[in-house]
Amino acid sequence: MTIKRFILPVLIVMLMHFECYAYDYDPLLLRAQATLFPKIVLLDQDVNVKIKSRELLVLVLYAKNDLENAGLTKELIEKKYKHTNKNKMIVKLVMYDDFNESMNATAYFLLKGPGRSVEQVSNHAQGSNRITFSYDYNDFESNALLSVIMKEKTYIYLNKKALQDYGINFLPLFYKIVKVIE
């Protein structure tokens, strides 16, 4: 009886509640990615033609109810980006649902989201030879280009299948430190 009294209201609340919950992120991995991402963008040898008014525009794509994590990512990227050259980095947040083809940027940072949305952004970036960097390297299946993974060491993963179509001209030495994933 006691159990029924306790569990039933909980189940009813759970069933009636439709609010989505934010995705779960590994804080250390996100920090590492936010540190490495701006540097990787600068290793694109054609980055200067992808900059407007000396501003590197980065779009952080996030899923509904993931605004807090997106805000944290923006903060981390801005904090970790050093003004090593004349260009400024502007980070903007865009929800996957609000993304459209007019949203051009220097590079795209993809937080967790539905595969279809990730693929839409990746295809758009690929069409304009822009870098996509995904939190989850499983998004390579949705055509994302880069990711960082922490295993026994920290690795930068590069999506071999997508590399040619993206047409990014990275510094040749960069290929020596990345792991190309089939």
Binding site: R31, T35, L36, L43, K153, L173
Partner: peptide, 12 residues
């Protein structure tokens, strides 16, 4: 930048 990138990877 590449050098810094490698240092960051080692740090993490």
């Amino acid at each position: 930048i590449l050098l810094e990138l490698e240092q960051d990877m080692r740090h993490y």
